[in-house]
Design a protein around this nucleic acid. Structure first.
Lengths: 189, 189
DNA sequence: CGGTGATGTGTACGATCGTACGCATCGGGC
DNA sequence: GCCCGATGCGTACGATCGTACACATCACCG
């Protein structure tokens, strides 16, 4: 089997498993994620699962760590472009309205929070994420404002996400203005 | 078996199953919740599960509906006592600092959000919850402020909950003041 | 180029899952 | 007081799960 042998030395197999794990979580939820399903999604043999990871916990931890890093990066990237308080405010509004807008991000974020609510090891991931967000905000706002703003963003994203009854709705046309209003109120202290 | 027969006519068996379901979800997560575990926790035979509920989905839906109602009730109860804007503000601060403070509430809330993020039928539950919260807030604040306040409360509760590295920490002594500050900023428009 | 240790895989096992369905049981009508 | 339809339960089945472990395969060294 040439195909089989080709698989043997496959760098990035671990990476592919991690990515596939996130895909499966999006599709089936953590509760529906199994070694077998991830293996199939990543197109690797079942044995590879236990070879590369000690169990689902480790796999999920790595997967969500990757997801959180990507989110943090985007968060920082958007804020880094701002050179004035007004631009920073606009960037924050953009974060709420654009970011975490896909169903994928939404689902993964909540799955992560749920895990974090239960297990401290996942809370480390969310804590690191929050710390980075806050640090990025503190480059533009005082610490207290940064903290409140961070919480506000979290709540707004969450509400925007759950508010829409259908899958594709965009929360209505007034939303951008509403978010801007909120950011304004918090930051204008 | 007298014991067996006594079980036959057991009113409130359904209720007990629903309550036990929530307990199991807290302990093991939705992903670790099975008919068998809930049956054991509720001290009912396995067959009762499929007799009273068509499947886990229906059971979870009923359980979380109950949970959401309890949360809504508490939310309204606290706000109903306020007779002035200042008292309403204080009530909101109390909501953030006291409510959703237990590990149980925290875990259940996020499990619910996670389900809502994936399935519309659970989103109905969260939508109803949010609608009631907003309506309660609108008795004291204008609609826009109510909406923003609702989002802020959500974010603050979440951050307070995840912030603490250990299980029992209380988020630090400055928190009540911080929350009051945030509420002040949002409502003083 | 042949041997060998490391690397990765296939498979089989025991546990646990949801669910279907035959049967025990009981309240109410005659 | 007895039967019978409805109510609720016990059990068994097939599917799926995680995991262990013997074994195939490859890179590398002598």
């Amino acid at each position: 089997m040439a195909e089989r042998r080709a698989r043997r030395t496959d760098p990035g197999r671990r990476d592919r498993i991690i990515d596939a794990c996130l895909d499966v979580v999006v599709a089936a939820g953590v509760s529906g994620t199994s070694h077998r399903r991830v293996a199939q999604a990543a197109d690797v043999p079942l044995g590879s699962m236990t070879y590369h990871f000690t169990g689902m916990d480790e796999l999920l931890r790595e997967a969500f760590t990757r997801f959180a890093h990507a989110g943090s990066d985007e968060f920082e990237r958007r804020l880094a472009g701002a050179t004035s308080p007004d631009e920073a405010r606009a960037a924050v509004v953009g974060l709420v309205t654009d970011l975490s807008t896909t169903r994928r991000d939404l689902v993964l974020t909540h799955e992560l929070y749920t895990l974090a609510a239960r297990e401290p090891s996942f809370r480390d991931i969310t804590n690191a994420w929050m710390a980075r967000s806050r640090r990025a905000l503190e480059r533009h706002f005082d610490p207290t404002t940064a903290r409140l703003l961070d919480a506000l963003v979290e709540g707004l994203v969450l509400h925007r996400a759950l508010d829409r009854p259908d899958e594709r709705g965009d929360g209505g046309p007034h939303d951008a203005g509403l978010v801007a209003d909120a950011v304004e109120r918090i930051t204008r202290a």
